[in-house]
Design a protein around this nucleic acid. Structure first.
Length: 259
DNA sequence: AAACTGACCTGTCGGC
DNA sequence: TGCCGACAGGTCAGTT
């Protein structure tokens, strides 16, 4: 569920809510998640985003969270003892604060580590330069949508924002990456940056499970152009948006203005 | 090395 | 109504 804008939104909230707080105890409710063996208590210094990972930095190491499809974090000033529905783990901080990890589909992960997984370019950072992106796109031959969603190449792009970015760039998601012109590559880069920033501004997209740490929904879904709009008119040319499958994922685009 | 496929889970929705 | 398959924001291991 959560892609870069959703994770970024959550991380910004965590920074406000738990930076500097003392983590006192962790409870794991789902036995699919293995015990962390943290040196508790520990002080959480800050929260960070690494692709779609959430990183909690402490003086002794990092707690790495991944929400996968249906995971979410909920911050509570006071929690009841019993886990709520779909609650898989809980972090207890000083003064009664708790962070709940909810995950209906149980794909989400939590680990205690020193290092970080290898990750592609951060599209919000200057490393996502026109030159770096062009090099990346040109150096292989595969569908452009699956390329921009490959976390080893670009960290954080997911299904919604890949479709949205390709619509803004007027590029068909099935185009082979090495067939894109310089102009198209520049347009795609700009579209990715524009879409991600706009989505962060709206607190991400709530299609179904995703919620911010206080329980509010994001609102970027109200501004989407193609994702889950199959059969509806394209906002640019009026023709119907179609849905196909690419890399096993639902893929939405305008067959007329995305060349 | 790079690019597909199915598997991992639980729930929902649409068709017959 | 009920059943059954397809599908959902993401990755991974296994296979070509």
């Amino acid at each position: 569920m959560p892609e870069l804008p959703e994770v970024e939104t959550v991380v910004r909230e965590l920074n406000k809510k738990i930076s500097g707080r003392k983590l006192k105890q962790v409870e794991i409710f789902d036995k699919k998640i293995k015990q962390l063996r943290l040196p508790l208590p520990m002080k959480i210094l800050s929260a960070d985003r690494h692709g779609k990972y959430i990183v909690l930095h402490s003086t002794k190491g990092k707690i790495l969270l991944h929400l996968r499809m249906s995971g979410r974090l909920k911050f509570a000033e006071k929690v009841q003892e019993a886990p709520e529905k779909y609650e898989r783990a809980r972090f207890y901080f000083n003064r009664g604060f708790a962070l709940q990890f909810l995950d209906q589909r149980r794909f989400g992960t939590i680990e205690w580590t020193k290092g970080l997984p290898k990750m592609g370019l951060n599209p919000l950072n200057k490393e996502f330069s026109a030159e770096n992106f062009r090099e990346l796109v040109r150096s292989r031959s595969r569908g452009i949508k699956t390329l921009i969603m490959d976390q080893k190449l670009i960290g954080g792009m997911g299904n919604i924002y890949a479709d949205e970015s390709l619509w803004f760039a007027k590029i068909n998601p099935l185009r082979k990456s090495d067939s894109l012109s310089d102009k198209e590559i520049l347009r795609l880069r700009q579209s990715i940056i524009r879409v991600l920033h706009a989505a962060i501004k709206k607190g991400g997209s709530t299609m179904r499970d995703y919620k911010k740490t206080g329980g509010e929904s994001g609102s970027y879904q109200l501004f989407r152009k193609v994702y889950k709009r199959e059969g509806l008119p394209c906002f640019r040319c009026g023709k119907k948006i179609v849905k196909i499958k690419s890399g096993g994922r639902g893929t939405h685009f305008c067959p007329v203005c995305q060349k």
